[in-house]
């Protein structure tokens, strides 16, 4: 049974959903890891990216590439709306505003009034056909024991490819003088200002860039599931993305990738193990089939706590950096 559980876990860890979450975490890394912006509404950018694709294709019959562009443009607008009033204020204002804005977006998409456009609580379907039509991989089952379908393999390649592209982009940005200003804002924005840097402008660039990456994650998420529903975009998605980022190591290029792999490996492995043990009647009813989700989350929370106690810098974080007094 061990190998079966292992393959279940591995299949999810390298799957398209994990890639979408890795993109969310890459965007958060830009916001939180490098710039010090506390964005608690990354799921809002994800929703905009996902619905940008779904609405453009399913509601208005547009092409898929246009949908992706609409999602990205929507993320830029959302970042500007959030940033203009809050980025001049203290960090916590952005946190409150973003978490509220993400919830507002979810309620707008699920309200019955917007049903003709967003599909309301039922969401939208059948918008990803254009993506799968481009699939160059011949039909079949791939990667041996993981038995991954050609469609899933295609979304995995595109999803993780996008993760690689944006990781490379952030790496190139952060080693440049532009990245130096971004990090100086995280350390002390008044110091950056006193040296002639337009702090507001750089924070806005960071918010837009990280938001766009989150929206691309949303598009990957929507296309891989081939459906969008408002209630998949709950606030906890943002906190999963934060968990991924912290698990892998904030302000490192590899952190979001490793974090997403480990996070989804543990979640899927745990769920598979509990479900299989429960089906075999080897688990007390307390952990039984109804409680698998809750038990898994409890376990992941415990794991994160232990990580914070024994390895606060994450898997790949810089320990020396962590120990410095930031103030």
């Amino acid at each position: 049974m061990g190998t079966v559980i292992f393959f279940d876990a591995l299949r999810t860890a390298i799957g398209p959903t994990a890639a979408a979450y890795a993109l969310l975490a890459v965007g958060l890394n830009m916001h939180f890891g490098y710039t010090g912006l506390l964005n608690f509404g990354q799921v809002g950018f994800m929703l905009v990216g996902a619905y940008g694709v779904a609405i453009t294709v399913a509601t208005f019959g547009g092409p898929l590439w246009l949908g992706v562009l609409v999602g990205i443009a929507g993320a830029v607008v959302l970042a500007l709306i959030l940033g203009i009033p809050t980025l001049r204020l203290r960090a916590d204002y952005l946190a409150i505003t973003t978490i509220a804005a993400a919830e507002i977006l979810r309620f707008i998409t699920r309200t019955s009034g917007s049903e003709p456009v967003t599909g309301g609580v039922f969401g939208l379907r059948q918008f990803a056909g254009g993506f799968y039509a481009l699939n160059p991989i011949p039909p079949g089952s791939y990667l041996g024991p993981l038995s991954i379908s050609h469609g899933r393999l295609w979304t995995m390649i595109v999803g993780w490819g996008l993760v690689a592209v944006f990781t490379l982009l952030l790496w190139a940005l952060m080693r440049s003088p532009w990245g130096r200003i971004i990090r100086s804002i995280r350390e002390d924005e008044d110091a950056a200002r006193s040296l002639g840097k337009n702090v507001f402008y750089y924070k806005m660039q960071s918010l837009v860039l990280g938001g766009v990456i989150g929206a691309v994650g949303g598009a990957v998420f929507a296309v891989s599931l081939q459906t969008v529903q408002p209630d998949t975009f709950l606030p906890q998605v943002t906190f999963f993305a934060f968990a991924i980022l912290i698990l892998g190591g904030t302000a490192t290029w590899i952190g979001p990738i490793i974090g997403a792999l480990i996070f989804w490996f543990v979640i899927a492995g745990m769920q598979s193990a509990l479900r299989r043990l429960s089906d075999a009647g080897q688990l007390p009813e307390f952990f039984g089939s109804q409680a698998v989700g809750a038990t898994t989350l409890t376990f992941v929370g415990l794991l994160l706590m232990l990580l914070m106690i024994f390895r606060p810098q994450g898997m790949f974080g810089n320990k020396r950096e962590m120990q410095l007094d930031v103030k």
Binding site: P177, R180, R183, E187, A191, A192, V326
Partner: peptide, 17 residues
Amino acid sequence: KALSRMTVMENMQLGAT
């Protein structure tokens, strides 16, 4: 306001306009 998690050299380089 030393920028703690940046090196001394990076602090200096930041100052150039």
